[in-house]
């Protein structure tokens, strides 16, 4: 039986075969794979999400927009850095990972799901108890912040929990 053609682009995972293979094997920027650097990236990412959320509560419309736009742009840059600091393991399809990496990725998604449930619960609590209204014009930062949290959470957890990589021997 002929082998099925190798996929080049994994649309649902948002990665290409080439970028995953490169991310898994590259030795460029070794500092990126140190635990301290990964954890710093997680911290910055969390702060930027918080900033984006806080921009919603700034009364001055212009200032609110600037804070949202700057933190949103930085968030996208940090999102990319975070993903590469964990070698795209959180996003890679099973066929491009080995069994240990698949186990790590799957465990990460379980933890991410639990954290996300907590966050969504808190948001719903605030939405029900508070005066949140989508009628306000500038609610989009909240949606972007939630979207970036959902997208980045597996990489955040992975970056926080993975030990520093040892050099290639």
């Amino acid at each position: 039986m002929a082998e099925p053609p190798r996929k080049k682009i994994y649309w649902t995972e948002g990665v290409t075969r080439k970028e995953v293979e490169t991310a898994l094997s590259t030795n460029k920027y070794p500092a990126l794979y140190r635990r301290s650097v990964r954890r710093a990236l997680v911290g910055i990412y969390a702060v930027l999400i918080a900033l984006l959320v806080l921009s919603y509560s700034i009364a001055a419309v212009k200032l609110s927009s600037y804070v949202a736009a700057i933190s949103g742009a930085l968030l996208i840059a940090m999102y990319l850095a975070l993903r590469y600091s964990v070698r795209l393991i959180a996003d890679a399809p099973t066929e491009l990972l080995d069994e240990r990496l698949v186990a790590i990725r799957d465990r990460t998604y379980l933890i991410a799901y639990r954290w996300l449930s907590l966050v969504v619960g808190i948001i719903l609590g605030f939405a029900i108890a508070g005066d949140f209204s989508f009628a306000r014009d500038s609610w989009w930062p909240l949606v972007v912040a939630l979207g970036m949290l959902i997208a980045g959470l597996p990489s955040m957890i992975l970056a926080w929990t993975l030990p520093s990589e040892e050099p290639q021997l």
Binding site: L97, D98, E99, R100, L101, E165, E166, Q168, L169
Partner: peptide, 18 residues
């Protein structure tokens, strides 16, 4: 090397270290 063994068995070199 770890890299050579990793390539021979189709895993990441860090997995050999683990």
């Amino acid at each position: 090397t770890r890299q050579q063994l990793a390539e021979a068995v189709g895993v990441h070199y860090q997995t050999i270290g683990y």
